[in-house]
Amino acid sequence: MASLLHAARMPEGGSRATAVWLVSGRRESDHTRAAYIRDVGWWVAWCLATGVDAGSPSTTAADVYMAELKASGLARATVGRRVAAVSSWYTYLVRKQCVAVNPFDGAERPRLDTSTSTTRGMSREQMSALLAHAAQHETARTHALLWLMFATAGRIGSVLAARVQDLDQDRGHQVIDLTVKGGTTKRFVVPPAALAAIHAYLAERGHPEDGLLFVTRTGRALGQPYAWKLVNRVSHAAGIAFKISPHSFRHSAITIALTDGRPLHVVQDFAGHADPRTTRRYDRARESLDRSPAYELAASVTLVPQHPAPIPHNVPSGGD
């Protein structure tokens, strides 16, 4: 990153401030920091290719960059994320007086559809089939990994960073502490089926007491590219016709919990979402007529007649 900034004519003070920016705020985790480096790197590389001075870019340059991102066919969410990362970077550099202005300040960013999640999730039946297939035909490590991804709705980076010593007990619950988005630690319940899969895997490894929970045969950390290939291979073998990602397990866990009627605030806390609107994106049944409160509302205000209803004039009151 430093060499790229130097090539883009960023002043030395700006490079030093960038190093501080990358380890501050919400960029404490390695995964988040790497994402910000990539997004800022795209902008700096564009500056180099177009002759723009990254240390004093114009708002016009920022507008052209956003237009080219949109024209490249990238998803609106990807464009928005890249622009947000660069804007955050320049905001910090302005505060440290390393640059004069943030060229992305006030720019019209792409409008995002916040009502639904674009991640492809699995139904309850598909998730059951996938886990059953993994139990019968895959390694103990794969079975345990898939179960923990689903049971915690954990992001793949958090699950792969889990350590054996993170498994514990709390008030009668089997739990695991995972490092979540933002670098904080969150405690998750590990249900019996997931715990059994993990114990089977650890028994195969000789019951290690510490170190990474999921490792290769040589004891090295599993990488995210491996996890992407793994979940697609296993899902295909389990009869799932569409392509999924590790995030599909998180998506599926949240969606199933909401479909089962768990309160929104409970699922929000489980997922670790700061904003309940993010959790609502996973609620695929939110428009279901079966959930409509109309019947209960009507019943709550319907008055029981206190006197017999009057007989209409055109209806005989008695006799033949």
Rank of each mutant, 00 (worst) to 15 (best):
A140D: 15
A140G: 04
R141Y: 01
T142C: 02
T142Q: 04
W147I: 02
W147A: 14
L148H: 01
M149T: 02
M149H: 07
F150D: 14
T152A: 13
T152W: 06
A153E: 07
A153I: 02
G154A: 10
G154K: 03
G154L: 15
R155I: 00
I156T: 09
S158H: 06
S158V: 12
V159N: 10
L160A: 13
A161Y: 06
A161K: 09
R163T: 09
R163G: 09
R163K: 15
Q165C: 15
D166I: 02
D168P: 09
D170E: 15
D170K: 10
D170I: 03
R171I: 04
G172T: 03
G172L: 08
H173V: 02
Q174P: 05
I176Q: 13
L178A: 05
L178N: 09
T179P: 05
T179Q: 12
V180K: 02
V180Y: 01
K181D: 08
K181T: 13
G182P: 04
T184I: 03
T185Y: 03
K186R: 11
K186A: 13
R187F: 11
V189P: 09
P191V: 01
P191F: 06
P192L: 07
P192Y: 04
P192F: 04
P192R: 03
A193P: 08
A194K: 01
A194D: 05
L195P: 10
A196E: 11
A197M: 09
A197P: 09
I198A: 01
I198L: 07
I198D: 00
L202Q: 05
L202I: 07
L202F: 07
E204L: 08
E204F: 03
H207T: 05
H207K: 03
H207M: 14
H207L: 09
H207Y: 11
P208E: 14
E209Q: 12
G211C: 12
L212M: 14
L213W: 04
L213N: 08
F214H: 04
V215D: 00
T216W: 00
R217T: 09
R217N: 14
R220C: 06
R220Y: 12
R220H: 13
R220W: 11
L222H: 06
G223E: 13
G223I: 04
G223K: 02
Q224C: 04
P225H: 00
P225T: 00
A227T: 05
A227N: 01
A227Q: 00
W228R: 01
K229P: 08
L230H: 01
V234D: 00
V234I: 13
S235I: 07
S235N: 06
A237H: 07
A238W: 02
A238L: 07
A238T: 00
I244F: 01
I244G: 03
S245L: 04
H247S: 10
S248F: 00
S248L: 00
F249M: 10
R250W: 00
R250G: 09
H251C: 11
I254P: 00
T255R: 10
T255A: 11
T255F: 10
I256V: 14
I256N: 04
A257N: 12
A257E: 13
A257M: 11
A257S: 07
L258S: 06
L258R: 08
T259R: 06
T259Q: 15
P263D: 11
P263F: 12
P263E: 07
L264C: 13
L264M: 15
L264R: 06
H265E: 14
H265P: 11
H265S: 11
V266G: 05
V266D: 14
V267D: 12
V267I: 14
Q268P: 13
Q268I: 05
D269T: 09
